[in-house]
């Protein structure tokens, strides 16, 4: 477990978090390569199903990063994303998962440092939680679903 490198999926809004990631890059701020970014036009577009698919496919942690409150390019996509994240957290809880494996973050396009720091902190947290319950089983069944 010591060498555990988690796989983390970050759904990042094109108008803020994705740009912040870009900025982190251009400022040469490093953040863990564990975080795989999926650019979305708005976090309001992230469905519960997308999050669940990420977990099913083996993600150890998922976060959705949208604009600061009140700053959504599409008015309230970020607040709706937050509601959906809470809904999926409830599902994870019912499944007996640690709900910290899923999080909602908010940042603006200029917050390169925040993006990098958030990525580090979240990765660190997931490292502590260990591999997702799916991977922990490490059975053939898991590999089957990966085909």
């Amino acid at each position: 477990m010591e060498n555990f490198e988690p796989e983390i999926i970050a759904f990042c809004c094109h108008y803020c978090a994705y740009t912040a990631a870009d900025m982190a890059g251009s400022k040469r701020l490093s953040y863990p390569t564990n975080v795989k970014i999926i650019r979305v036009p708005c976090t309001g577009k992230v469905d519960a199903l997308h999050i669940m698919s990420a977990f099913e496919k083996g993600a150890d942690g998922v976060y959705v990063a949208g604009c600061l409150e009140g700053d959504c390019h599409f008015k309230n996509g970020n607040t709706r994303a937050a509601q959906r994240v809470a809904h999926v957290q409830k599902i994870l809880q019912d499944l007996g998962w640690d709900t910290q494996r899923l999080a909602m973050m908010n940042m603006s396009a200029g917050m390169g440092e925040v993006f990098a720091r958030t990525a580090c902190e979240f990765t660190e947290k997931i490292k502590q939680l260990g591999p997702s319950p799916v991977k922990q089983m490490n059975t053939d069944s898991y590999r089957q679903t990966q085909r």
Partner: peptide, 21 residues
């Protein structure tokens, strides 16, 4: 359709955790 997809995903995760298919 959406809820079917979500529940299917949830059930698969549950079975995976149990080591069942």
């Amino acid at each position: 359709r959406k809820e079917v997809g979500l529940l299917a995903s949830v059930l698969r995760l549950h079975y995976l955790k149990q080591g069942r298919t």
